[in-house]
Simulated scan of single mutants.
Amino acid sequence: MAVRQRAVTTLPNLMRSLRKGSPKAAPNQPLPSLRRAFSLYDQINLIDNVPEDQLRFQGYTDTGFTVNGVQYEGSLLCIGNLLLSWTPKKFSEITPNCLSIFQLVRPIPEILILGCGRYIEPVNPELRQFIRSTGMKLEAIDSRNAASTYNILNEEGRIVAAALLPYGVSS
C-alpha cells in the first residue's frame, strides 16, 4: 500500500513537470510504480471466458469426471477438445498400445498430462520412451491436478492431451 500511496502523491508532480517541458524537474528520483494492487487473476479471468465448444473439467469423483456439465464414469482420454472413453482401469494397465492413437493424431500435442489416480506413480521406461518417440513431453501427476492443468493449458490455446484415471484409483 505504501508504494501505491507514494505513486498517488508523486504522479501529479511528475505530470506537472512533464507539461512544463522541464526534464530536470525530478533529477535522480525514481518513477513511481503504477502497478495495480490486484492479482493477475483479478485483472484477467479466463475461466469465465471459455468458449462453449472447449472441454473443461469441472469436477471429479472417485469413479469419474464432470466435463462441460456432463458426468463421465471411468478413465478419459482428451486430445485438444476431443473427449474419448479410455480402457485402462488402473495405472499398471497403461501401455504404449493404449496410447497408440498418438501415432495417428495430427497435430501432435506438445504435452501429455497423465493422471495417475489418487497418487503420482512412476512411469515405466518403455511407456516414457514411447511418449517421447511421438514428440510429446510427459507430465505424470495425480488426476485432480492433471484435470486442472489440462484446463489451464487448453484455455491458453495450447495443443495438449490428457490421459486420466479416476481419482479413486490407487496402485
Rank of each mutant, 00 (worst) to 15 (best):
I131T: 07
Y119D: 15
P23H: 05
E93F: 03
G80K: 14
R19S: 12
Y150F: 15
M136W: 04
R36P: 04
G117V: 02
L99C: 03
Y72W: 11
V160K: 07
A37H: 04
E110H: 10
G59D: 14
R19K: 15
G135E: 10
N28F: 02
M136E: 08
A162T: 09
S143E: 02
F130P: 08
D53M: 05
I94F: 02
V160M: 08
C116T: 15
S148M: 13
V160H: 04
L77Q: 07
A37M: 09
P30A: 08
A140Y: 03
G69I: 10
L46C: 05
T149A: 13
M15C: 10
G74W: 03
D53A: 12
S85K: 13
G21V: 01
L40H: 08
R106W: 10
G59Q: 10
F91E: 06
P88E: 04
A140T: 08
A146T: 04
K137G: 13
R128K: 15
E73M: 07
Y150L: 12
S33L: 07
N124D: 15
S85V: 08
E139H: 01
L77P: 04
R132S: 15
V160W: 06
N45V: 05
D62K: 14
G21D: 05
S17E: 13
G157K: 10
W86K: 03
P12V: 06
P88Y: 07
R144L: 14
Q5S: 09
L77C: 03
N124R: 14
L31E: 08
N97G: 01
L55K: 08
N154S: 15
D48T: 11
P107F: 04
G21S: 03
K137H: 10
Y41G: 05
R56A: 07
P107A: 01
P12F: 11
P122R: 06
L83S: 02
I113A: 06
I79S: 05
G115R: 00
E139G: 02
N68S: 07
G21P: 04
V70A: 11
C116N: 07
A7T: 04
R106A: 10
Q71I: 09
G115E: 00
K20W: 07
A7G: 14
L11E: 03
I101T: 04
V105A: 11
E93I: 01
I101H: 10
P109D: 02
P107S: 01
S100E: 13
V105T: 13
Q54W: 11
L77A: 06
R36N: 09
C98M: 00
L40S: 12
L77W: 00
I47H: 13
V160A: 05
V105W: 13
P30R: 01
R35Q: 13
L31D: 06
D142M: 05
